[in-house]
Amino acid sequence: MKRKIMLISTVALMTVVPMIVTSTNEVRATVNSAKKTVMHTAIAYDRDDNSTGRKYYAYDVVTVDPKKVTIDGNLYYKVFGKNQYLKATNIDGVTRRMTHNAYIYRSSNRRTSFNGKWKLYRGQTVTTYGGSYKFKNGKRYFRVGGPHKQYIKSYNLGPVINTNTAASTDSGEETSFADQFIPEWASDGFYRIKGTTHWLVAVLVKADKKLPLRDPQREENLNKYAYITFSKDTNVYNADGTIQNHNGQKIVKQMGQFKVDKLMYIWVPSEKKANLFYHLVGTKFYATNTGTSFFDKIDVGHDAYVKADDVKFVNGVQLTPLNTAAEAQVAAQKK
């Protein structure tokens, strides 16, 4: 292989990393909140990693809870007083090391300065914010400053060496697998070395023959959850077997894959029998149209279930029922 090979141990990457660098754009608001500047357009997610549809744009100032939250291996700030979470890398950024000398750009063909300098050099470290942008020239760039436009070609930057978010607890937080690499590396996939827990970044490897690409983060999730799809409009049930009341709305038929983490029998009083149900991990789902908006969502809460017969298993863990139909019937009769 002529190109440089990067060998990564998943064991090493999942090690708890102490966060000791604090953000330079933090201004304390109160004891229980802090004001932060969004440095890269950020989608707000709920606690279950579902998009809320709300966006915060670069240089918006937002009040957040100082304590960070880990969702699916990534660090988030909770917007103060709202069920909205913003990825910390869009606010605090991450530290990367320069792999080549590089100019700073404000557009694909116009240079600018950064901290009084027009050029950064190999070996220096720099903070980048969020994912990379694709400019009109087809090349990708990372934002390194603001509010003026200041970008560096992603080609000149190495993987993440530090997350610039202060830990909220003594035990620190985990750094996700994906955050170890620049986004285009992760999007190009990885090769797994057979019989090991080591991975090769596909973009840095020239394979002698075509090999299947792998996604370590996705594989980790597939080992934790089962995934279903809604092949028809679907009712949502409570743990006692009653249908949730959403003014006639159901979860709408859709192509997406959704996490479930339990399979169990629940006695359904209206049918006088036990049915097999999946427990939903997410809490907000697109709903059938009621005339207001096709994109309406219903909030089903954290203890919601759908009939296994109403949905289609796609992939992930093959869940085993936690109980039997008879046990579900006996449990219902005791209530």
Rank of each mutant, 00 (worst) to 15 (best):
K4Y: 04
S9V: 01
T10N: 01
A12H: 06
M14A: 09
P18L: 13
M19Q: 07
I20L: 13
V21M: 07
V21R: 06
V21S: 11
V21E: 12
T22A: 13
N25Q: 09
E26R: 08
N32W: 09
N32S: 13
A34G: 00
K35V: 04
K36E: 01
T37A: 07
H40L: 06
A42V: 03
Y45Q: 03
Y45P: 04
D49Q: 08
T52N: 01
G53C: 02
R54D: 00
Y56G: 01
Y57E: 06
A58M: 07
Y59H: 12
D60Q: 10
D60E: 08
V64M: 06
D65Y: 03
T70N: 13
T70W: 04
L75K: 03
R97G: 05
N101L: 12
R106A: 14
N109C: 13
G116E: 11
G116Y: 03
T128N: 01
S132Y: 03
Y133I: 12
N137K: 12
R140P: 03
F142T: 05
H148S: 14
L157P: 01
G158I: 00
N162G: 06
T163A: 10
D170C: 05
G172P: 00
G172I: 06
G172R: 00
S176N: 15
F177Y: 12
I182C: 03
P183H: 05
P183A: 09
E184R: 12
W185A: 13
A186I: 08
D188N: 13
D188P: 00
G189D: 09
G195W: 01
T196W: 05
T196H: 02
A202S: 11
D208A: 06
P212R: 01
D215P: 10
Q217A: 10
E219Q: 03
E220R: 04
E220D: 03
N221F: 04
N221G: 05
L222Q: 02
N223I: 00
A226E: 00
N238E: 10
G241D: 06
Q244V: 11
V252E: 11
Q254E: 10
M255L: 08
G256A: 07
V260I: 13
V260Q: 09
P269V: 02
P269G: 02
K272W: 05
N275R: 10
G282C: 15
K284V: 15
K284Q: 15
F285P: 15
N289E: 06
N289K: 14
S293Y: 13
F294Y: 11
K297L: 14
K297C: 14
I298M: 10
D303Y: 12
A304R: 08
V306G: 09
K307A: 08
V311C: 07
N315S: 13
G316H: 01
L319R: 02
T320K: 10
T320S: 09
T324F: 06
A326V: 12
E327G: 11
V330A: 10
A332N: 13
Q333T: 11
